[in-house]
Design a protein around this nucleic acid. Structure first.
Lengths: 141, 141
DNA sequence: ATATTATGGATGCATGATGTCCACAATATT
DNA sequence: AATATTGTGGACATCATGCATCCATAATAT
């Protein structure tokens, strides 16, 4: 029940890019500024590209750039690009492995936790996580 | 970011006991009714005992019983007995390993998620998770 | 005395997160 | 065309942890 290092890397990379959305950033640059192992960062960027969060340019002076503006990138998108669908317990999605599914009494609770988490991640954008943005909880639109 | 099997085992064991709080239940009985590996269940019960959630009796006709009434056992207690303190990210508790701690912009978000989760687990009792209890989200006191 | 049950510790195993390496494709520059 | 740079894709290595088992021992009811 913890934020993975990988997700942290992803968010840090994106906020770094988001602070100057116009600029193109190479993996090397991101890696150095954010202290992320270069070869691992490659894997992470791949997922963000596939989900259409960033676009990539190959070749000299290549690199990455945000596909949308920071305020249009939801933290939920990033989360799901890295971790896959948000799912608190397995039995809520997969085909009913659990013998107790029908009578399970804790499911509603985890579902509640999950929905609450989704709502927060859905309401938080990259914009909210940029250095500039002051007022951490209050987001004046 | 998922509910561990172990926590699921713990909750299932407790709800099983909670359905008849008067009765004493042996590991064997719990294990069989809830499909939990006996030797693993032993480890789990140990943690619940240590946290004062259940008490144990050794010897023939021994077993476990709840220490408090179901409505006095918070899901948060159970969670913490199994998983330890609720912590979404490491840097929020340990002594500042992260280089970016001061300037970290995602911390507030995870903190928000964490608080929201804590609130739900704090407000949910074992009573809410018993078979009898109908009205999954509405808890009429 | 015996059978039953929990306790505590050591250990095994599998899975997944994290990280590395390398050959290759794309492309800007010369 | 040649070269250097950068991302891509896959295989592989490493390590931690969740899950599980086993066994010797302590407690205790009969």
């Amino acid at each position: 029940m913890q934020v993975s290092k990988t997700l942290d890397y992803a968010v840090r990379s994106l906020t770094y890019m988001g602070n100057d959305p116009v600029l193109k950033r190479s993996m090397k640059e991101i890696s150095e500024h954010q202290h992320i192992p270069l070869s691992y960062l490659a894997k992470i960027m791949r997922r963000l590209v596939k989900k259409g969060i960033v676009r990539s340019m190959v070749g000299p002076d290549g690199g990455y750039a945000l596909r949308r503006s920071p305020k249009e990138i939801k933290l939920r998108d990033v989360y799901e690009a890295i971790e896959g669908e948000i799912r608190m317990v397995d039995c809520m999605d997969r085909d009913n492995i659990c013998v107790f599914y029908d009578s399970c009494t804790q499911l509603p609770v985890w579902d509640k936790v999950q929905m609450s988490m989704i709502k927060i991640l859905e309401d938080t954008t990259l914009q909210d996580m940029l250095s500039k943005s002051r007022g951490k909880s209050a987001r004046p639109n």
